[in-house]
């Protein structure tokens, strides 16, 4: 293993090519992430087809207002992450770190609301599978709605945590001066991941909270 001082890797031939490869690799990874969520969306589609009324009722047990706040938080955090890429392209490292931190703060706010919601479901008994204790809705279908709810939001929350870690690492890199106007592949590529996690939520939000 060679100790690398330069982030440019020789086997790519040119810097432009390394940029291209990193972008393509990340987009392919994002594509595979979409397919990771696919099962849950398909399960949602099929079970909603089987139990349309129960899904409407189940959705009323969720906090649509707070979910809208969450959506706004995520959309705004996405703006800040996009700005981070914008600033690092101009080489403004401090500003980059700052907007990334703001974006992370909003992500944490999102997870805070999520945690509060989970706690409410816990007290209510609206839990997946064999823990389901909600009496207003039948177990057949009702427990499936909440299983899908927890799986979709849970998988999304896990992705949020990973993405937060990624942004934290980018903040560290920006502060320590690793990224410049020439070399900032990790910021561009890490930002893509954050946006994708945001995009998943854009679909989860109406599917779970606004069923009618």
């Amino acid at each position: 293993m060679s100790t690398e001082t330069s982030p440019w890797e020789e086997h790519f031939g040119s810097r432009e090519n390394q940029n291209k490869a990193a972008q393509l690799g990340m987009w392919i990874f994002l594509g595979s992430e979409v397919l990771l969520f696919t099962n849950l969306f398909v399960g949602y589609g099929v079970y909603r087809y089987y139990y349309p009324d129960i899904f409407v009722e189940g959705s009323k047990h969720l906090e649509a207002g707070w979910a809208t706040v969450q959506t706004l938080l995520l959309v705004t955090s996405s703006l800040f992450v996009a700005l981070a890429v914008h600033y690092i392209r101009q080489g403004r490292q401090f500003l980059t770190a700052l907007v990334l931190l703001v974006g992370m703060g909003m992500g944490l706010g999102f997870l805070g609301i999520k945690g509060w919601e989970y706690w409410k479901h816990w007290t209510e008994g609206a839990l997946p599978g064999e823990y389901y204790r909600l009496e207003e809705l039948p177990v057949r279908g009702g427990s499936l709605f909440f299983t899908l709810y927890f799986l979709l939001t849970g998988l999304h929350a896990v992705h949020m945590l990973v993405a937060l870690g990624l942004l934290g690492w980018l903040v560290w890199g920006a502060v320590s001066g690793k990224y410049t106007a020439e070399y900032h592949i990790p910021v561009e590529v890490g930002g893509l991941y954050w946006h994708l996690v945001d995009v998943f939520w854009l679909f989860i939000y109406p599917l779970l909270y606004l069923v009618e």
């Binding site: 399960g43 079970y47 089987y50 139990y51 997946p128 599978g129 064999e130 389901y132 177990v139 057949r140 279908g141 427990s143 499936l144 299983t147 899908l148 927890f150 799986l151």
Partner: peptide, 9 residues
């Protein structure tokens, strides 16, 4: 978490 469990629909 029975997503495929017929007993839960």
């Amino acid at each position: 978490v029975g997503l495929f469990d017929p007993a839960r629909g």
